[in-house]
Design a protein around this nucleic acid. Sequence first.
DNA 1: CGGCACAATGCTCAATTTGAGCATAAGTGA
DNA 2: TCACTTATGCTCAAATTGAGCATTGTGCCG
Lengths: 331, 331
Amino acid sequence: MTTADDTLRAEAGAALANPSAVGLVAVIVAATDGEPRALTVQVPGQATGRGDGLPYGPLVPEHPTLERGLRAWVERQTHQRLGYVEQLYTFGDRDRQGEDSAGLHSLSVAYLALVREMRPAGLAEASWRNWYSYLPWEDWRAGRPEALAEIERKLLAWAEEAVDPKLRRRREDRLGLTFGLCGGAWNEERVLERYELLFEAGLIPEAQGQPGEACNAEVTGQPMAFDHRRVLATAIGRLRGKIKYRPVVFELLPPTFTLFQLQRTVEALSGTELHKQNFRRLVAQQGLVEETENLTSGTTGRPARLMRFRREVLLERPAPGFRLTPSRRQS
Amino acid sequence: MTTADDTLRAEAGAALANPSAVGLVAVIVAATDGEPRALTVQVPGQATGRGDGLPYGPLVPEHPTLERGLRAWVERQTHQRLGYVEQLYTFGDRDRQGEDSAGLHSLSVAYLALVREMRPAGLAEASWRNWYSYLPWEDWRAGRPEALAEIERKLLAWAEEAVDPKLRRRREDRLGLTFGLCGGAWNEERVLERYELLFEAGLIPEAQGQPGEACNAEVTGQPMAFDHRRVLATAIGRLRGKIKYRPVVFELLPPTFTLFQLQRTVEALSGTELHKQNFRRLVAQQGLVEETENLTSGTTGRPARLMRFRREVLLERPAPGFRLTPSRRQS
DNA sequence: CGGCACAATGCTCAATTTGAGCATAAGTGA
DNA sequence: TCACTTATGCTCAAATTGAGCATTGTGCCG
């Protein structure tokens, strides 16, 4: 038997002998007019990779850090400057990575970026898209999305399909857990799990090798190049979780804003509606914002006070954020 | 100007032309006798990489997914089977990655694993270590750790050191935010931020190029090979956050356990003490556990009821976990 | 100009959820 | 039997939630 010592020595060599192709992908999010948007580019090309995609590029040795590399790529590809950036996840499944580059492993390190204003997207090939056009079942702001009716039907059929009763049981459990079927509750953070489930059930056309399965974009959403929809789903889930305990929403808002704009933005991200009065009470008592002396004007209804994010809270409070208080509309 | 189309085509080639060396690292956690432990191996060798380290190995093309690759490596290197595994973070700073492999970028994809029982660690070179021996300032279970007194002194000195008043101000803010100095509060989740701050302040010997700085292991903790202490810090921070909203602690406990064991485990991970009665009330009303018909025996004090984790809650409740209720001991 | 529709804000109230402790029960070892 | 230790039950006041009602400014429309 080899010792750990030998093993480790051998490994150091193996790392250099087995290099991988590493890509950087960005989910760049903005929220204007109360709609959540992601910056997309047009991916030219072959089978799996075509149509809408996320900005991406390879990691090259010139980049001192992954994040710097990402910023460089995005700014060059979309002419969009990035502010807040956080690492999302590293994807590396061989069978999900689109192109199979001759035995080379190819990884994608995905990042989430939040930008304040949305510029008209430098290049014609880059444009802002409402993220719910890719994942329509995630938008519960106007009540239960219609798409869910058909999705449910197909998912239940998929569960039935399993002959092994244990497998069927497991599928049903997952349906309950992720889609709130079979007595479960809808949890807005489980975006990725829902996408993966649909993928496995063959309802996502990106799942190559799957039978065509009349995939209606109205119902199962617009496809994306490569595995980018999965990356998008990861980003949304992460962001929905994060706004609850970190004041990241403000990265999406202009320097001054009304409480209602703030609420609309939170709702856009979380895909739910909130109780207005309680929302403002929460924000107020958390001391996240302070009043300016200005009011809005020219809008219908009573003018609202303009507020400003209190950057100091980043220092004061340990982990300020929002706890969401859904209104009854939920189910 | 090139079009996005051209740019993307060029990039696809660049990815293959600029491969990277990818490594997998694991933070394998267990908690026995109310102490949090990580599995470490002895790293032989040169300057930056020697001494205690985390199990690691290169990603090779045979691995179908990153996670599978990791499992394979760990089982081969430490003879420890893994249960719960989650991806932590991908590290890729060129100047922090120890060995500079001839222009190749080298990344480490880090994973967090939780294991139930701790086997005596297959190989002599692998052993379980209390994770607070590497980060002593993180253990507040017996009140404010002594090490903090000296750390504070040095950190304040470091802040003073800045000539530019703006820089000094920024450093002080960070001290408040991470270490709770200058009027801030201690947040047990900011493990990584604290480590990084110490690193920048030159109190961590792994920061090569830094002046020796009498780094007393009693105070600033035992060093690790490469950047592994940073990986460990990341893992602890993530786990401390996660136990609050997901029932992952049970991955560390035997099939049946007492409420007090459960509490001790949570305390070990979070590094704080909890209020006993309230803790049990919380656990009870969340329905996370159910009674068995057995009691403990042979221990001092009144025997406790043995409990069992209710796996069903994974399906029922949207996101069950613990909200920690610290006892007054905190400051 | 008076009335309407529509937001913004202020405030109330009951139902829960926390945070802290006191009191009792049930073993072990001397 | 006593002293000690840990497990459990229960209480109580303070703080936080969840739902709504009421009032106040504004632009718009006859």
